[in-house]
Amino acid sequence: MIEVIDVHKRFRGRKVLNGVSFTAEKGQITCLIGINGAGKSTILKAIMGLTPLKSGMIRIDDAPVGPAMYEKVAFVPDHLTTPTGMRLSEGIQFMKDFYRNWNDVRANELLAFFKLDRTERVGNLSKGMAAKYSLLLGLSQDTDYILMDEPFSGIDMFSREIIAEVFSTDLIEDRGVLLTTHEIDDMEHLIDQAVLLQNGSVQLAFDCEEMRTTEGKSVIDVMREVYTG
């Protein structure tokens, strides 16, 4: 379980995170929803230890953030993190060299599934292809958790469809998935838990199927109530 407990962060005098608390369970797809600037990416970065916090705590399976957790949690940011001069195969080799949890068989499967050319240079990838490559690097690590920042944002429709397909496969199964989005439409049926973020704090966190069963409301219905009501 990933626990975010009363996290505060300031950036340039603005309170970006103002007491955020929520949890993301293993085996569940949890979605952080909020408009741009709501602090979604900052939360993911904080979980990965990529930005310091003013106060609060983050624990992953009861352990604090540290180097050991990078074998346990994978992060797929919304942009490339491999030097643009490298070939795709070199980027993969780099991962293989540094991560014990690297699953090379899966990396090859995903290369084929995403139709990526291993001899291509990272800098030449289109936006959609870059998103797929980032996803490949994240999914090919055998981690318990995977964090994804806006996996569907700013890429073409067909790439979105292919990426959405990943969510209904065993690539995701049994892992804890925490992803962010500012528009839910593609993902309504994909997610288990929704965490609505506004003004740096959690407005509402709920189980999507439970919400549909007990109140007959879609995630968008709830968002409408929270953000406009």
């Binding site: 990965m48 230890g49 990529l50 180097p67 050991a68 990078y70 074998e71 992060f75 940011p77 942009h79 490339l80 993190t81 491999t82 030097p83 643009t84 780099f94 540094f98 991560y99 014990r100 990272v122 800098g123």
Partner: peptide
Amino acid sequence: FGRSTFIYRLLMLPSAR
């Protein structure tokens, strides 16, 4: 800086920084 921010990857390597 640039299109690819390698620092994300470097800081997430499972060895001491």
